[in-house]
């Protein structure tokens, strides 16, 4: 379904540009319509209520509209990212470091003075080597 030439990276993840634009239009339209219609309906049915409270309830409906849009888009379009669980092996770590725009030397220096608890924590999460090895294999 997704055309490779339409893939772009937006906010740290890959999307199909056409799917994204449909999604953005759908989200804004559905959210906006639900809010405005709810506001009209509540104002007409509860004339005595304070405007603040009515706006608050309409906001709930508006947010429900946004959630609905996300559910529709999520059902129609599948994720483009490739998910790897821990045991499926690591991915290219030096790319990750580059994507995060980190200075490898600074990272290594920071780890030299880190507390033992912090280092144990990072090792358990298998991210300790990211910052130690990642800097060595970095081509810069």
């Amino acid at each position: 379904m997704a055309e490779p030439q339409r893939l772009v990276n937006i906010w740290e993840d890959t999307v199909d540009l056409r799917h994204l634009l449909i999604g953005l239009a759908c989200g804004s339209a559905l959210g906006f319509t639900s809010y405005v219609l709810a506001l009209r309906a509540f104002t007409a049915y509860f004339p005595g209520e304070t405007p603040g409270l009515i706006k608050g309830y309409a906001l709930m409906i508006g947010i429900a509209g946004c959630v609905m849009a996300a559910a529709i888009i999520g059902t129609v379009f599948k994720p483009k990212r490739v998910f790897r669980d821990t045991d499926e092996g690591p991915i290219d770590r030096s790319t990750m470091i580059r994507n995060l725009a980190l200075d490898p030397d600074e990272e290594r220096r920071a780890l030299e003075t880190a507390s033992p608890k912090l280092i144990r924590e990072m090792q358990e999460l298998q991210v300790y080597d990211f910052f130690v090895d990642g800097s060595r294999s970095d081509p810069r």
Binding site: I10, V15, C26, G27, A71, I73, F77, K78, K80
Partner: peptide
């Protein structure tokens, strides 16, 4: 969950 769905929300 597709990123498209997150961004439309």
């Amino acid at each position: 969950v597709a990123q498209e769905a997150v961004l439309s929300m």
